[in-house]
Design a protein around this nucleic acid. Structure first.
Length: 429
RNA sequence: GCGGUAGUGGCGAAGUGGUUAACGCACCGGAUUGUGGCUCCGGCACGCGUGGGUUCGAUUCCCACCUACCGCCCCA
């Protein structure tokens, strides 16, 4: 193979691209109902935008970012996620200004890049849909955005979804809980897995969702963050729960659910699916939460935010496994069969006239015999076939066949060129 | 970054240190000169991921690299 695509990338070919269009269109429709507007930000940003937003809690910055120095010696990162770039744009364009209705609600969709070891559903170039809402601390934003995510996934045809929520409280809560967790885990230090020993001081919350069996045993008795919430954080979370209930939305609380990044606080959520695509285990398809400190972290005012992201590749995997029926448009209006070299000029003129009238039309370019051309017409699901050969040229009228009924009629060339709509209508009625 | 499995035509897949690399699907052509299905006949890899090495000889053995897949780390 002379050339192959870069590691961890994919070509989305015809047949597959239609599914992407369907997903994107469905998302746009749902976002519109909630008055989220599209924002398009660069696919690369200055390194600092992402390193600043992520913090230094993990090896995301050193290991996972797809970064490089450009010819001007600028440190560039191909965006690994949507939020930081959107926040940067929000700040840079002063969308927090008084002329903008609050909250500012935006959505994005597009490619993201992470320098990872590829696996199924984990690419170096992958795609996300996401939304962000800036400027309101109202729990109603949390709840409506979660509801929108659920509606979106249902619209995609997903079944067996589970909403899981948790709260991380405010900054003080997180710090107090972090210390409490370290205090709890330190006596068990020797028993922890090698990975969790590492995590204990770098990012202790991550020990909570360790995959190691023995770690899980230890963590079962760990303190719950819910016991460290201050009054305001408790009130926020309580309201969120009440609002979900009033909407009839089922949820579970998982006090051990965490986020790898520091910028999250208060409500976090994940929507999980136990699709066959994951062997029946619950896997997260959509995740999000509140990030009240991020905007100021990136140099803006103290504006709160709430958002979520959804991986398109993973979504498509589920839709395929669950055999979600997609509206596929593989119909062809007209196939034009030309017989012999003498028919070529008429074939060219007529097919262009038909296309110009707004119909989809295909023809043969390989001088194949009528039988072969009809075979192709059949395979392309052509509604009608128009045939032009010597006798048709002599009569200046083409043979038209309705492929469903087999019924054949004769139509003058001039009529095809002047009013194909009428011809088509009577032919397929 | 670490560990494991794999890589044969458009797709699926068999195979062997040695004269012509099975088979199926798809595709193309033909079976009364211009009509869709079925059936029948025929065609379709100068080559077995790439590059080295061992050997009289390698798709088959060895090494490196690339890519895919699975698990770990990480997960925004």
């Amino acid at each position: 193979m002379a050339y192959q695509r870069p590691k961890g990338t994919a070509d989305i070919l015809p047949g597959e691209s239609e599914k992407w269009q369907y997903v994107e269109q469905t998302a746009r429709d749902v976002f519109k109902a909630y008055q989220f507007k599209e924002i398009r930000t660069p696919m690369f940003e200055n390194f600092d935008v992402f390193s600043r937003s992520v913090g230094d809690t993990s090896d995301i910055v050193t290991k996972e970012m797809y970064d490089f120095f450009d010819k001007g010696d600028r440190h560039i990162v191909l965006r690994p996620e949507g939020t930081a770039g959107v926040v940067r744009a929000y700040v840079e364009n002063k969308l927090y200004g008084p002329e903008h209705q609050k909250p500012v609600k935006v959505y994005y969709m597009g490619p993201m890049f992470r320098y990872e070891r590829p696996q199924s559903g984990r690419m170096r170039e992958f795609h996300q849909l996401g939304v962000e809402a800036f400027g309101s601390e109202s729990p109603a934003i949390d709840v409506e955005t979660i509801a929108m995510a659920l509606q979106l996934l249902k619209q995609f045809g997903l079944k067996n979804l589970k909403l899981v929520i948790n709260t991380l409280g405010d900054l003080e809560t997180r710090q107090a809980y972090r210390q409490a967790l370290i205090d709890f885990l330190e006596p068990h230090f020797a028993e922890l897995s090698a990975d969790s020993k590492e995590r204990l001081h770098k990012n202790p919350l991550r020990v909570l969702d360790s995959k190691d069996k023995h770690d899980q045993e230890i963590v079962k008795d760990a303190p719950s963050i819910l016991d460290y919430l201050d009054e305001a954080s408790t009130a926020h979370f309580t309201t969120v729960k009440q609002m979900l209930e009033s909407l009839g939305i089922d949820y579970e609380i998982d006090a051990n659910m965490v986020r790898g990044l520091d910028y999250y606080n208060h409500t976090i959520f994940e929507i999980m699916s136990n699709s066959k695509a994951f062997g029946g285990n619950y896997m997260t398809v959509c995740a999000g939460g509140r990030y009240n400190g991020l905007v100021s972290e990136l140099g803006g005012p103290d504006a709160p935010g709430f958002g979520f992201g959804l991986g398109v590749e993973r979504l498509l995997l589920i839709m395929a496994a669950d055999e979600v029926p997609l509206p596929v448009d593989d119909q062809l209006d007209v196939y034009l069969v030309g017989i012999g070299a003498a028919a070529a000029p008429a074939t060219l003129k007529l097919i262009q006239a038909i296309r110009g009238a707004g119909f989809s039309a295909e023809r043969d370019y390989l001088d194949r015999k009528p039988k072969a051309q009809f075979k192709t017409a059949n395979r392309l699901n052509a509604k009608v076939v128009i045939t032009i050969g010597d006798s048709e040229l002599a009569a200046k009228a083409a043979n038209l066949k309705n492929m469903a009924t087999g019924e054949e009629t004769t139509v003058p060339f001039t009529k095809i060129e002047s009013d194909f709509k009428a011809i088509f209508k009577t032919a397929v009625k």
